[in-house]
Design a protein around this nucleic acid. Structure first.
Lengths: 226, 226, 226, 226
DNA sequence: GATGAATGAGATTTCATTCAT
DNA sequence: GATGAATGAAATCTCATTCAT
């Protein structure tokens, strides 16, 4: 409207408009859901006007799909990197969970899954696509690590399919938690502690010869045993 | 319009309309989300018309709140029952996970949490209410069991707060999974197997002297150890 | 609808349902308007249920028309009585205004006009009907009185048409006032005082030889005059 | 849809949309009442579509309130102007009534009061607001004029409160009349004649030494007296 | 006669989308 | 490229009316 506005909108001319819009939209979709998020809200958070969003994305649905597609790559790269590591399986598991616990894995990474969980019913194709391109691929990596651990003799024999879910579950859980209840919770989730506890249980529960890991509560077995 | 239709609408008068509507609505909310569910769809699934829904629930929001409130009681009763059991902590844990794995805990119980996860951002008060009345209470029960297990000498010392989340996570995870990806998944989640694997890992991971449990893959430690 | 015999039989045993419903409806129509009044509100105020209203009046519109028709008779009777009086015109005018000021003319009588004023646009035929059967007839009576007064030599020559409106206006005005603003007004309309003032002005303003009337402020002319 | 339509809807962009919508709405509210007027009708009369109305007014109720607020200023300005005149009270009264009679006071001014009378029951706060900001203020001006007339010696002693109502009544009455019955009436209200008759009665009725005013029927007292 | 659960047409309101500027 | 006024389809919600009991 005013000159100031006009100036402002040109000030960031070089900025990545589509990226900014996707980011704004993803945040809002995660917070309110796809249907409850208005295009105008997305535009506002991205610092543009409604019309501009349509300049880059023909429909709200396409915007959503673009987000999922755009977030796909970082996910896959992370998976690729994880699979490439050539260390013993138990060390790899420890590394992954530690990366999660110490915040090396960015929390934003989980926003698409969070939205996906709520909207899979309304976007079946997208859900199928996501399931195959990200989730199944991730599970395959995880199953391979577990199988390698068994072959290496460090892990007990196990139902790798089910165990892979057990390993993923607390991660998925924590993601949802942070985006749903944390804001209202008195005692917010202590992710590092959760990661430590999870790792401890897993190593104790999966390894043939459990070994102690560092931490407040972990690895006291010998002591306790008397 | 036709006689048949006219007859039909008066035939089932004595039925529990509010209950039927709540059930239909909860199913749809879980499937599509709150905003994406039309009142008319709810009515249709409940076998009534739009107007009838408004006869019992003044707004869509109130319908949602009524659902949460109505589903509260069964949840709390289940919790109460779980807490009342006077058996060793590890037996109790086993019992709970077996109940889940064998379908004794109805899957519908988890629909409200599923919807809550998607809608907490839009219904902050309700989220807070649910968090306190169901989730916090459930966590307290679980923590008490874990603490008792430690005191009884069967569980290792642990960070009960974090461990309680690790125990809950696969349950929550499976709930979400079934309502989001299962329909598109080639290999649907094997809940009994997941429950067994989870129990195995937990007992191995938490107990001072792990004991064998029945199952395809579980409890081979002693053999292997040797 | 049903035969007179049936009506009569019930009238003795039970209350006059149609009358009660009309009364309740008229009150609400005057308070909120026709469109803003719900059939259920009418039923409730009449102490019956929705269905019962439809037992006596096929539609909301017919209920309104029935009210207008039912209130017609008392109005006409009042007019007839007024016209029948064989007294000098100025005495008659005084009598009428005194009747109004002292509450001899029931306030309810004006509810239909009040509603009519708001709804004439939506019920053109009814408005026309009311205009002819009540209003025009009333004006004719009033004009006759004025004309007689001029002929009798007590009133000045005048535009009887316009003067008849001037006489009616404060009455109509007070009716509306009471049903719109009085509830919110600090100084509610003092009808007796208004009637006295109106009469004073009229007699002073219309008569050839004005005469004093009783009252706080009225009839001080002679004194003031010197 | 068609090209012509598409063109048309962008053609008059610069027009004062809110004002046009308020004007259209006020006309319809006065004609049919608030509840009986559909937003779509308002839009149509304003030459826009439903959605556009909501672009400027969040709800139908707010539109009504905006109308009342917007019409407030012209009313108050008129009052201010009336009060500012420094002429003898009887001259002022004459001037006012003549202004009304000759159409110098626009009839639209009375639309809000007309609607207010029908809707006061549904908008109590607005009624109270209007009563205080317009009506009470208007009455105060009128009472001051009357009191000044008494002090100046031109008016008889009187109950200024009641007399102020008597003066207002025919004006209010005529407004309602025109918007309710005139369309169905064979003999439409002759406002100039009504204003003349009213002024004649008032001057004769209120002044200590009545003076003749020009007009067909007025001021024949001396002749008649004879 | 009386009831009130159920209906569905129609109102208000929302918001994704369009397009002249 | 960017804007935002305008649109209209589709949602929520209301309520006059029906009819089995």
């Amino acid at each position: 409207m005013s000159d100031a506005t006009t100036d402002a909108r040109w000030r960031r001319r070089k900025a990545d408009r589509p990226g900014e819009i996707r980011t704004a939209a993803l945040d809002l979709f995660a917070e309110r859901g796809f249907a409850a998020t208005r295009m105008e809200d997305i535009a506002e958070r991205a610092g543009v006007t409604k019309g501009t969003v349509y300049l880059y994305f023909p429909t709200k649905e396409e915007l959503f799909k673009a987000i999922v597609r755009a977030e796909l790559l970082p996910n896959l790269e992370l998976l690729e990197a994880a699979a490439a590591e050539k260390v013993p399986a138990d060390k790899l598991l420890e590394k992954l969970l530690t990366a999660w616990g110490t915040g090396l894995i960015p929390a934003r990474l989980a926003l698409v899954p969070k939205v996906m969980m709520a909207e899979a019913g309304n976007f079946p194709e997208l859900a199928r696509f996501y399931l195959q391109e990200v989730i199944d691929r991730g599970r395959r990596v995880l199953r391979a690590v577990l199988r390698r651990g068994v072959e290496e003799g460090s892990f007990r024999s196990m139902d790798v399919e089910s165990v892979s879910y057990c390993i993923l579950a607390p991660f998925v859980f924590s993601v949802i938690w942070r985006h749903t209840f944390e804001r209202h919770d008195m005692n917010p989730l202590d992710i590092p502690a959760l990661a430590r506890a999870h790792l401890d249980i897993l190593l104790q529960g999966l390894m043939v010869s459990p070994r102690s890991i560092g931490g407040k509560h972990a690895g006291r077995r010998s002591k306790t045993k008397k």
